[in-house]
Every structure is written in C-alpha cells, then in structure tokens.
Design a protein around this nucleic acid. Structure first.
Length: 428
DNA sequence: TCTGGGGTCCTAGGACCC
DNA sequence: TCTGGGGTCCTAGGACCC
C-alpha cells in the first residue's frame, strides 16, 4: 500500500452553523448552543467566540452577557445535527470511499489514490460544494499524517487569508506552521500534559517535532508520545480506520431535569438509557455480556457521592427487557432513601456476535430463549423504524418523566420531523 | 435556582499460575 | 514455609478526544 495522504474535513462551529442553515438571519450574529438542561455552552458562532464566551461556560453565569449582546441561545438539537452530518458524509463518500467519519463534525479522507493536480484548488472546490449543497462552512487540512492534517485545518479555520484550506506537504511551510501552534492545541495534548510540557520549556508544536521519538516517549508518555513526534514529522502512525471497526461499549446517560430521591424515577431513567443503548447494539448484530449502572449526586453540592455496579451475564443478550431488569436489580441494591440523585448512566459492553450463541457446543446456553428474544426485538425495532422510537416500550420506561432534561429553547427538527418542517411563506 | 454526553486507549498493579 | 522469575488476565483509573 502506498503512503496515505489525509484530508481532514472539519465543520466550523458545527452546531452553531447547523442552527444558521435554516435561519440565515442568524448568520453574522452571536449565537450559542447549550448542552442538556441548557447547562453549558457546547458551540459558539464566531461572533459569540469574539465575545470571549468560553467553550463549556455554564450558561447561568453568562446570562447578563447574553442579554447585553443579544446572544441567541439554542438547546442542542442532535437530531438536526446528526442529519446534517449525514448529508456531508454523503458528499464526501461520493468523492472517495476511503473515508473515516471521526466524529459528528469531522471526517478524514485518504486522497492519495485520487488524481489531484492542485491540492489547494481541490480543497477549495470541496469546501464550496459543501457550503453550497448543505450550507455548512468547513475547514480542510491536507497532510501526510492525521496529526498534521488536524493542525492544518486548525490554521485554516483561524486565518482568514487561508480561506479555509491549508496544504502541508512542503517541509519549510510545515515547520513555519508548527512554530505558530501552541502545544495546547496539538491533537493529543490536553489540560494535563500542556502545562507539564510548558514548564520544561516546550511551547510549540515545532518544539515537539524536534524531539527524538525516545524523548517523546519519555516526556509525553509511552507509544502515544513517540507517535506524536513522528506524526508531526510527516510520518504516518495512525492509519485511516476502516468502517468496520466497532464500538466496545455503548452508554447512555443524562443529568436529570430535577434531582430526585424517588427510586422509581431513577429506574425509569435507567430503563430508557438501556432501551437506547440496546437498540444501538442490535443494529450491529451483537449481544452484550456486561451491564453496568452508575448514579451520582450533584457534584457541585456538598457531600457529592457516586455509586456504580456491574454484572457479567451468564448468557449474552441484546434484549431490552432482560437488560432493564438487570439494571434495575442493581439499582435496587444501591438505592438509599433520602439521597438526591442527580444523574444516571446505563452502560453495556462485552459484546459478542449474536449468531455465536447458536454454535455453543457445550449447551450451557439457552439457545431457544435467545432466538425468541432476537425475533421479538427485531419486530420491535422494525416497528420503531416505521412509526418512530417509543412506539413500543417497557413499562418501566414510562414510570416517570421527571428525570427528563429540560430543553426550553430547542430549534425545530427541520429535516427529521414532519411536524417541524421549515415553512416558506410567499407573499403575493 | 442554574455547570453535557459519548467514547477510546494505555498503564499500573493485583490475582493467579507454573 | 519461604524464595524467585516469568507469564497471563483482569480491572481501575488516568488522559485524551469531540
């Protein structure tokens, strides 16, 4: 296989841009998207960023600032964002099947096999196409390693004169951009490593690139540090991940709309989380052998506590009902009356193929029960596919609703809900 | 009053075995 | 009972990502 060449397509302020797609009047306005419970800022338009509203800022602390500058606020609308993301992926897939969807707003392409004469012009063309067809502005970085492609897209996003694209193939050009990037912004350096490296005089990406792989290993830690050094020197260490690579765990969690001391409310939440997680699992034709739950009080209040429990199942399953009863049994063992629960999580893992059971020669497993459950869940999933999620549900899921997060200012699901289609009003 | 949700990978250390 | 090296498997926790 020849050397890969990566193009990272990175959506600018993705959630904020999605809100602007259907409300063009918001373009050029300060706008923020808030997390569940409208708790903190998870996306900002360029104008909101200019007001020095940090990522992750608790919304209540910035209320006055929002008001003062007329900052538009939106509750996160993941249905809309997911759908817009899918449309972008479609465009990219038509360019090349050698694509890795890295997150909801970023994809890597391996463009080494494409016949491209001028990378800069190519990137500009892709950028314009996505903007025109979907309405979301993107930044594109091109380089021989993922770490450099990422670094290139960062620069492309920030420097208007680059017009959203940057190609890092020439060594001198590369080094000048390495010098201009503080270490904190390198892919793989977080809040812990940043200050530690800075304290020993390493300040830019260039300083790291000039380390030997051995020094990288020592200073940054293990294989990860060594790879970072190599990748900044244009060596590929992280290949394009194939589409088939599957998740190792699936979780669902929420901070409750209101704290609760009622076990039924927490049970209902855990059941809903299990229903979500197990449905995702079934899509990949797998079953779980582990179930875990995790509950906490409010970490901003005194006496913060967490509880967790996990069981290993005798028999793998992807059955919502079975998994719910396991989760709730665990919770029953943890529950303490009077505790104000604030947040809960259900997590499944230890996945095996759901056809493997049929080849269990030892006969320890109950294959008929498994098969019946599989058919039952397939029926449920197909009904959900046709009539919408929550058409059928387990009783526990509807035991209570007060755990549900508040979403007071969510925009319409323009593209995924018939009731919320955008309206065009034509005046005669 | 009000501070998100969903993941991965790596390592150290314990339990256990020969 | 104690000694020691070599190896595997598992888990908890740290660090990072978007």
């Amino acid at each position: 296989m020849s050397q890969p060449l990566f193009a990272l397509i990175d959506c600018n302020n993705f959630f904020a841009s999605c809100e602007q797609v259907f409300r063009p009047a918001l373009v050029g306005q300060p706008l923020v998207v808030l997390s569940s419970n409208d708790g903190c800022v998870v996306a900002r338009s360029a104008e909101a960023r200019a007001l020095k509203i940090p990522m992750g800022a608790p919304a209540f602390k910035y209320k006055d600032l929002f008001k003062q500058h007329g900052v538009q606020q939106f509750s996160a609308n993941f249905e809309l964002y997911g759908d817009i993301s899918r449309r972008i992926t479609e465009i990219l897939t038509s360019i090349t099947p050698r694509l890795e969807v890295y997150s909801i707003d970023e994809s890597f392409l391996d463009i080494s096999q494409l016949d491209i004469k001028d990378y800069q012009a190519w990137a500009q063309h892709v950028r314009k196409t996505i903007l025109q067809w979907v309405g979301v502005p993107v930044s594109i970085g091109i380089a021989p390693s993922k770490t450099l492609a990422k670094l290139a897209s960062e620069h492309a996003k920030r420097k208007p004169e680059l017009q959203g694209t940057l190609v890092l193939l020439d060594e001198e050009v590369r080094d000048s951009y390495l010098r201009a990037l503080p270490i904190e912004e390198i892919w793989g350096i977080g809040w812990r490593l940043g200050p530690r490296l800075r304290s020993i005089g390493i300040a830019t990406a260039y300083d790291i690139a000039k380390l030997s792989p051995v020094q990288g290993r020592k200073l940054i830690g293990s294989v990860h540090g060594e790879r970072m050094v190599r990748e900044l020197n244009s060596q590929t260490c992280y290949p394009l991940e194939s589409l088939g690579s599957e998740q190792k765990m699936i979780s669902a969690s929420r901070t409750f709309g209101n704290d609760t001391d009622q076990s039924s409310v927490v049970e209902s939440a855990l059941a809903n989380f299990i229903a979500r997680a197990s449905q995702k699992l079934r899509v990949s034709n797998r079953a779980a052998t582990r179930v875990a739950i995790y509950v906490t009080t409010d970490r901003h209040k005194p006496g913060y506590r967490t509880w967790s429990k996990e069981v290993i199942l005798d028999q793998p399953t992807a059955d919502t009902g079975t998994l719910i009863s396991v989760a709730n049994q665990m919770f029953a063992e943890l529950y303490e009356p009077g505790v104000q629960y604030h947040r809960a999580m259900s997590l499944i893992s230890g996945f095996v193929s759901d056809t493997q059971l049929q080849t269990d020669l030892l006969g320890f497993r109950d294959v008929p029960t498994f098969d019946r459950s599989k058919q039952r869940m397939a029926a449920v999933d197909s009904i959900h596919g046709r009539y919408g999620r929550q058409t059928l549900y387990y009783g526990t899921e509807k035991l209570a609703t007060s755990w549900q997060p508040r979403k007071s200012i969510r925009s319409p699901r323009y593209t995924t809900s018939w009731d919320e289609l955008p309206r065009v009003i034509i005046k005669a």
